[in-house]
């Protein structure tokens, strides 16, 4: 089985220059990998570094040492050292991310926010839009909201726009940061189905889920992040 994501010997700390340069270790000796068709869940208590780790895998946070290897167009790219252009290419084609909160762009309609990852990768805008509408319909976002910018949407509505945007592509790796956090039971159910479909399609998923019920149903494996945390000794 293919292993499109390998995290090897990763360590990360924050240096807070505005706080007399104190160093806050986040994680060290992080080693794991995610296979195609598998959903791996990052577990552990709040504040232990789960989101930070996910951001490192996306290239959004830097790392101090170690490698984050992503299989991209037949080659492994190390996101820990790749130049910005390569990181962006990996994100465009291979590595998707559903964040906790939608970062809204003024004036852009929900349907275009969702279609954007496809358009950015060269899809015909009308085709991308059609697919975006299918996604939004599936996630029960009221049709009258599709043409509006999501800035004024409720938390749950923004979350669904965010999920639609993350799931619309055929990326081989998908990172999920609490995608079901602000959803009602019915929509949570739909997201669980969508994750199962991604697994069947051979996508490697790495996520954070605080909802026990959802976690149990989607996870093939749980990695306890406290094992990488310097705070484990103190706990």
């Amino acid at each position: 089985m293919a292993t499109p994501l390998v995290v090897s010997e990763v360590a990360k700390s924050f240096t807070m220059h505005l706080r007399d340069g104190i160093r806050l270790p986040v994680v060290s000796s992080v080693n794991f990998s995610v296979k195609a068709g598998e959903c791996v869940v990052l577990g552990g208590p709040s504040g232990i570094g789960k989101s930070s780790l996910l951001k490192m895998v996306y290239g959004n946070y830097g790392v101090d040492t170690g490698q984050i290897l992503v299989e991209h167009e037949g080659q492994f790219v190390d996101l820990a050292t790749a130049d910005p252009r390569s990181v962006l290419a990996v994100r465009r084609v291979t590595l998707g991310y559903v964040s906790q909160f939608l970062r809204v762009v003024p004036r852009v309609a929900a349907v275009d926010v969702v279609a954007e990852p496809l358009v950015a990768d060269g899809a015909i805008p009308a085709v991308a839009r059609e697919k975006a509408e299918t996604m939004l319909a599936r996630l029960n976002l009221p049709r009258e909201l599709w043409q509006l910018p999501p800035a004024t949407f409720s938390g749950g509505e923004q979350q669904r726009v965010n999920i639609a945007r993350g799931f619309i592509t055929d990326h081989r790796i998908l990172l999920l940061d609490e995608p079901t956090a602000s959803l009602d039971a019915k929509n949570r159910e739909i997201v669980v189905d969508m994750i199962a479909e991604k697994k069947r399609a051979g996508v490697a998923l790495l996520g954070i889920f605080h909802d026990d019920d959802v976690r149990v149903r989607v996870a093939d494996r749980v990695i306890d992040v406290s094992a990488f945390s310097p705070r484990k000794a103190a706990a």
Partner: peptide
């Protein structure tokens, strides 16, 4: 210098941290 979201979300230099904060 670097990827825009990385510099803004994980600034390394004291001055960049000051700007972002």
């Amino acid at each position: 210098q670097g990827l825009t979201d990385r510099v803004l979300d994980d600034p390394r230099e004291a001055y960049t941290q000051l700007l972002v904060s």
